[in-house]
Amino acid sequence: MVRKVKRLLAAVAAGALAALCTLTLADAPAAQAAPKPKLPPAGVDITGDRLDQPLQLRADSRPAEVNAVIDQVKWLGQTGQQRGPGAKDLGPKYTVVVLTGGNPAKTYDLYPLAKGGPRVYRPAKQPDLSKPRAGWFFGRLNMSETLRGVGVPLEKQFDTLSGGIGGGERVIPEEALDPVQDIGTAMDELQRLLLLNVGVVVIITAGLAGIALLIRRRTR
């Protein structure tokens, strides 16, 4: 009797162990197949003059704009100038916060209309707790047009160059730099000036002749 009970208990224990192993193996693929949480996309947030709400750009929906804004600050060196322009010469300020994985990583202050050319200020206190040396840098000459292109309310600038630090190319229309057209325009203006001078001489001569004739009649 005791042996039968032991055999029965052993059989029950073996069955329970087999069922537990089966459940564990069945749950393992499901756990492995569970997708990892997707990290938020990289991007930039822009705040500043005439922006009622932060301008939020994300790499998954507007990659070109995000890269264009980051290109304005990614080249900054280790050290910049300790003193920048006076407050009255800086113009409107726009703060750019670079996000990595949805979290703020870097912050910069951009002054696209500063007197003497665009400027960038990098504060020493950064969101990622890095401690770069605070400093002022000359910005790229296309800063204003880049910010305007991503939605910042700035007036269009016609006399800027694309690129800036490290080179660039003119964005002035080629026809404005055509020497043949400039010479033709200059000749037309010269011709008009000569005709105007001739007209003035004729009028003065006629006036003098009239005065001389009047004096001659009175002296008779």
Rank of each mutant, 00 (worst) to 15 (best):
V5P: 03
K6Q: 14
K6C: 11
R7E: 13
L8P: 02
A11T: 12
G15R: 04
C21T: 12
A26M: 05
P29Y: 05
A31Y: 05
A34I: 06
K36Q: 10
P37H: 06
G43Y: 05
D45A: 14
D49W: 15
L51T: 06
D52G: 00
L57N: 00
R62T: 15
P63R: 00
E65A: 15
I70R: 13
I70V: 14
D71I: 02
V73R: 04
T79M: 14
R83Q: 13
G84V: 00
G86F: 09
G91T: 07
P92Y: 08
P92F: 13
K93A: 10
G101S: 01
K106T: 02
Y108M: 03
D109T: 10
Y111N: 03
Y111E: 01
L113E: 14
L113S: 07
K115T: 10
K115M: 05
Q126S: 13
Q126H: 04
P127Y: 02
D128E: 02
W136R: 01
F137M: 01
G139Q: 07
G139Y: 02
S144M: 11
R148H: 09
V150W: 08
G151W: 03
V152Q: 05
V152C: 01
K156F: 15
F158C: 14
F158Y: 15
L161R: 09
G163N: 05
G163E: 00
G167M: 01
V171Q: 15
E175N: 14
E175M: 07
L177I: 08
V180N: 04
V180R: 04
V180E: 04
A186P: 07
A186I: 03
L190W: 12
L194Q: 12
L196Q: 12
N197Y: 12
N197M: 11
G199D: 11
V201C: 10
I204M: 13
L213G: 12
L214H: 08
R217L: 15
T219M: 13
